[in-house]
């Protein structure tokens, strides 16, 4: 039973990660694969604030999300200012740099990992509560991002992706929008990090490396870029698949590479055979129903 709880919690956390990553690369059109580093920052910040600074855990989780959000602004402002393409390079550099720092600093637990992270749940309490909590946060994330992307902000994101120059010439601040999109997406990843840390109670830098980037990218691309349900489906299916593989009773030395091949293979297959993903998003931006009927009345 505990195994199923763990799986459900991981799926909920990956729904948060995939939905927020979809917001950044799908809706925002910002090319970055460093999403896991903000997951890591949220997790480590929250864990350290709770463990070493004695902060109440809920407060530490929120603070962890804010630290991830602020860190993402520091990465985005200089790179987006030059050109969107630099974000990819800057964010990968940032991801590698932060993970390397975590490995080599004493108070983060180093390469061996951070242990003794206080748990949010009191010992002996029902783990289903945590399942419910993470699912509730996942639903809130999806609902918030869907609400944003179907309102005036979503309209502006669509226009910015279509033609940034024309967008700017109409008085819209593309730079500020890109930074805000990146910050919100990264902050939500940080929130998922805090939720992870205070349930699993152990963090190691290897959990947030490039393989994680590949996994998240696969979830969003296979699920369907810019669709609401795509990344959710992608996260659930691709979180379940590796678990299913472990039932095949293969030697552990094969499991890691096999998962890597699976993810990369899936991205390649989908890029060629079904680039729109399992659940395709329409090419045309449609606002909320309320907005549309509103317009027809006017």
């Amino acid at each position: 039973m505990e195994y199923l709880y763990t799986l459900a919690i991981l799926m909920a956390l990956y729904v948060i990660l995939a939905a927020s990553f979809n917001f950044v690369i799908g809706y925002g059109g910002l090319i970055s694969i460093a999403h896991p580093v903000f997951y890591a920052i949220g997790a480590y910040a929250s864990a350290l604030l709770a463990r070493d600074a004695g902060w109440p855990i809920p407060l530490a989780i929120v603070a962890g999300a804010l630290v991830a959000l602020l860190a993402s602004i520091l990465v985005a402002v200089p790179s987006v200012r030059i050109s969107g393409d630099y974000l990819l390079i800057a964010s990968i550099g940032f991801q590698l740099g932060v993970l390397e720092a975590i490995k080599n600093i004493g108070w983060t637990g180093g390469a061996g990992g951070l242990t003794n992270i206080p748990a949010l749940l009191a010992p002996g309490s029902n783990h289903a509560i945590y399942v419910a909590l993470t699912i509730a946060v996942a639903i809130a994330t999806v609902v918030l991002l869907r609400w944003i992307s179907r309102g005036p902000y979503g309209r502006a994101m669509s226009a910015m992706r279509d033609d940034e120059l024309a967008f700017a010439a109409l008085g819209r601040n593309a730079l500020a929008m890109k930074v805000a999109i990146f910050a919100l997406g990264s902050g939500l990843a940080g929130l998922a990090g805090g939720l992870y840390a205070h349930y699993f109670r152990f963090l190691a830098p290897g959990q947030f490396d490039i393989l994680q980037s590949a996994a998240l990218l696969t979830m969003v691309v296979v699920g369907g870029l810019r669709s609401t349900w795509g990344p959710i489906l992608g996260a659930i299916v691709l979180e379940a698949l590796p678990q299913a593989i472990t039932f095949l009773d293969l030697p552990p030395s094969l499991l890691g590479p096999l998962q890597g091949i699976l993810f990369t293979g899936l991205v390649l297959i989908f890029m060629f055979a079904r680039p729109q993903g399992l659940i395709p998003a329409g090419d045309i931006w449609r606002g909320r129903k309320a907005m549309a009927t509103d317009a027809r009345r006017a």
């Binding site: 309209r155 669509s158 226009a159 024309a166 967008f167 008085g171 500020a176």
Partner: peptide, 28 residues
């Protein structure tokens, strides 16, 4: 032209409004 192909005619115009509070996440 540089119109926004993923938007309707009306939405193309709305992007050009002098004040567009919908472009700011905090304001939103």
């Amino acid at each position: 032209l540089r119109l926004f192909p993923s938007l309707s005619v009306l939405d193309n115009l709305l992007i050009g409004a002098r004040v567009y509070p919908g472009e700011s996440l905090p304001a939103l």
